Amino acid sequence: MSQPPSPSIKTRLLILSDTHSALPHAPTNQPNASPFRTPFPRADVALHCGDLTMVGKLDEYERALQLLSAIDAELKLVIAGNHDISLDEVFYACKGQYMQRLKEPDDELVGKAKALWTGERARAAGVRYLEEGTYGFVLRSGARLRIYASPYQPEFCDWAFPYYRHQDRFNPPHNCTPNSEPIAENPIPDYPSIDILLTHGPPYSILDKTTTEEHVGCEHLLRAARRAKPLLHCFGHIHEGWGAERVGWPTNSNPDLDINLDTDLKPNSPQISHRTRVPVDASALARDRAAYVDISSRGPRPLVRGSETLMVNASVMDAQYRPGQGAWVVDLDLERDEAKAGDGDGDGDGDVDMVDG
């Protein structure tokens, strides 16, 4: 008698951020080689957490698309970052000419940039450009991926996709951080609605420390992440924060008390019950061209869904804008989508299905 299929499917993710239009180094077997080199490790899904470019020029986007096209993955999900200024139409209209040092404003660049990331070339490479919101995809394996994406972060050195620190962009008004201004147009949904949280900026106190020892992540995003409890939260933005942590969420029988924990914004806030840094072996990182972590049910330490989240800062650039930090490869379990499993793509283009988020 045949066994019923497993309700979950082990899925491999390749995570990059802050490539800033750099192309990977050529293949080499040198022991101290940069991990940012071809070929990239194969994955089911690639995630780019923004800052595709230095300042949002069209030739920079072209190089970023060239980089993503070289990745062997059936689905590649991409968001913008604060350096991708021409993908933020409002910001670019105000400051694009100045920031790109143009003699005259380029009124067509915003449309060209968006067309590049949503057009046929990107789709043929498996790339899907995500604006802020919740999305669902079904892979050819039958695994269902539910993801929330946002390019926004607290105002940082006057770059794109900003909001002020007193503004809560990620929580609905009834869950808003106390004494903040609710501005969420597409709030992060409650647990267990999403598997992955894909943002450009980090949450407060998690892989967000600058060279000046300042935590610059978003407290509202931390609050939303705890509410959503995804399997994975990946981001970049703070280059020197590269790394990964397993974060445990506290539980409380009184939801109101649980929400009020968010008024404490110290790095060891009671919002987090425990946190463990994922160790990285430098020689293995250079050899394998990525840092690997397995949180699937078959791994050495499976992640407890609803109690833990793997946080990953995948910035390829270091603090001096040198592309020497590696990608991350994460193995995790996604739920099987019974209605779509094994049927390929419903639209006939040989790719994955996009379903309601």
Rank of each mutant, 00 (worst) to 15 (best):
Q3C: 08
P7A: 08
S8Y: 14
S8T: 15
S8V: 15
K10M: 13
L13E: 04
L13V: 04
L14N: 10
T19F: 08
A22Q: 10
A22D: 14
H25I: 06
A26Q: 15
A26Y: 12
T28E: 14
T28W: 11
N29Q: 14
Q30A: 14
N32L: 12
S34G: 08
R37Y: 06
T38R: 13
F40S: 06
P41D: 10
D44P: 01
H48Q: 12
V55K: 14
V55H: 09
G56F: 02
K57R: 15
L58V: 04
D59H: 14
Y61A: 02
Y61D: 02
E62A: 15
A64M: 08
S69Y: 09
A70I: 04
A73L: 03
E74V: 12
L75I: 10
A80Q: 01
N82D: 13
N82P: 07
S86K: 09
L87V: 08
D88S: 05
F91T: 03
F91P: 02
Y92G: 01
A93T: 08
C94D: 15
C94N: 13
G96S: 05
Q97M: 14
M99K: 15
M99Q: 15
E104G: 03
L109H: 01
A113W: 12
A115W: 03
W117E: 04
A122L: 03
R123C: 04
A124D: 12
A124S: 13
A124Y: 00
A125H: 10
G126V: 04
R128W: 07
R128E: 14
G136H: 06
A143N: 05
R146T: 05
P151I: 10
Y152I: 00
Q153H: 08
Q153D: 01
Q153N: 14
P154M: 11
H166G: 05
F170Y: 12
N171S: 11
N171L: 07
P172N: 01
H174C: 01
N175K: 13
N175V: 03
C176T: 08
T177Y: 10
N179V: 01
N179W: 10
A184D: 01
N186E: 15
P189Y: 11
P189C: 07
D190M: 06
P192L: 01
T199Q: 00
H200Q: 10
L207N: 09
D208N: 05
T210C: 06
T212F: 09
A224W: 11
K229R: 15
L231M: 06
L231K: 14
L232E: 07
H233R: 04
H233K: 01
H233G: 04
H237K: 09
H239Q: 07
E245A: 05
E245G: 05
E245W: 07
V247G: 09
T251F: 07
T251E: 13
D258T: 00
N260K: 03
L261G: 00
P267K: 03
P267L: 05
S273Q: 15
H274K: 12
T276L: 14
V280L: 09
D281K: 13
A282K: 13
D288S: 13
D288Q: 15
A290C: 15
Y292A: 11
D294N: 12
I295Y: 07
S296V: 08
S296L: 09
R305F: 03
N313C: 08
Y321Q: 12
R322M: 13
P323C: 07
A327E: 07
V329R: 06
D331C: 02
L332P: 02
D333P: 05
L334T: 00
A339I: 05
K340A: 12
D343M: 12
D343W: 10
G346N: 09
D351S: 14
V352S: 06
D353F: 04
M354E: 15
